[in-house]
């Protein structure tokens, strides 16, 4: 099955927590890690999907046909993003069910509404980041996808997906401040591990939304510039 690897990966990371002695600390650790794996799964889909589809269309050569269609670029990209959110949600829920089943997680003290609010808010800046990253395969079919993965790797490193950001070496810790994923992970963990309420997470959610309001137009702007560049240099063509 398609998602087999993702499910197993999440479970494996959760299992790392089981190396601790049994007790509440262990339960907390397992949940801490599982939240990291799940959220990273969701956010990386949002981040990758636009980039992946641009890459795919370039590879197959269909991008010249899609870009020739009488449709605004915003509409086209909006469609791809909507698909990414839907796909990301469905895949995350499937993995969540598998995790809950496997680990018998007890979410009694968790605030699910707060976590959901943060998650929705965080998808906005991540779509923005995804649009910025999609410019790379638009500029270069071969190296674009690799460059996207480099950015994704940096985000994984600095955002505190599986550890608190304070364990990062000093020289890179500042980067955590810039990543929207840092705030998302921190806030969702507060909601699920410590039961932080919706109201206490309002500020973070608003901040995430605000960063999205900056990042989405920025991504669209850069994408439009890159498309114009491609139309001048003729870099969209694959062959013929």
């Amino acid at each position: 099955m398609f998602w087999f690897y993702n499910v197993i990966n999440t479970l494996t990371i959760g299992l790392i927590g089981f190396s601790m002695p049994a007790g509440p600390a262990r339960n907390r650790m397992v949940l801490y890690l599982a939240i990291g794996a799940l959220l990273w799964n969701f956010l990386s889909i949002l981040f990758q999907e636009v980039s992946t589809s641009v890459q795919w269309e370039r590879w197959e050569g269909t991008i010249e046909y899609s870009f020739m269609a009488p449709i605004r670029r915003v509409t086209y990209l909006g469609g791809v993003c909507a698909w990414a959110v839907l796909y990301g949600l469905v895949r995350t829920v499937v993995i969540l069910i598998a995790v809950a089943f496997f680990f018998h997680i007890n979410l009694a003290g968790a605030d699910l509404a707060g976590a959901a609010m943060v998650l929705v808010a965080s998808s906005v800046p991540f779509i923005g980041l995804g649009l910025v990253a999609a410019v790379l395969p638009l500029l270069s079919t071969e190296r674009g996808a690799q460059a996207t993965q480099v950015i994704q790797g940096v985000l994984l490193l600095v955002s505190g997906v599986y550890y608190p950001v304070r364990v990062l070496p000093e020289w890179i810790r500042w980067a955590a401040v810039l990543s929207p994923a840092t705030y998302t992970l921190d806030a969702v963990r507060k909601a699920l591990l410590s039961g932080a309420s919706v109201t206490s997470l309002f500020g973070v959610s608003l901040g995430l939304l605000a960063s999205g309001v900056v990042l989405i137009p920025l991504g669209l702007g850069i994408f439009t510039l890159a498309e114009r560049h491609a139309m001048r240099t003729g870099s969209l063509k694959r062959n013929g």
Binding site: W56, E60, G61, T62, E64, Y65, M68, R238, N239, G240
Partner: peptide
């Protein structure tokens, strides 16, 4: 609309 030498498809 345009048809190219290479039939570009998924």
């Amino acid at each position: 609309n345009r048809v190219s030498v290479e039939a570009s498809f998924f």
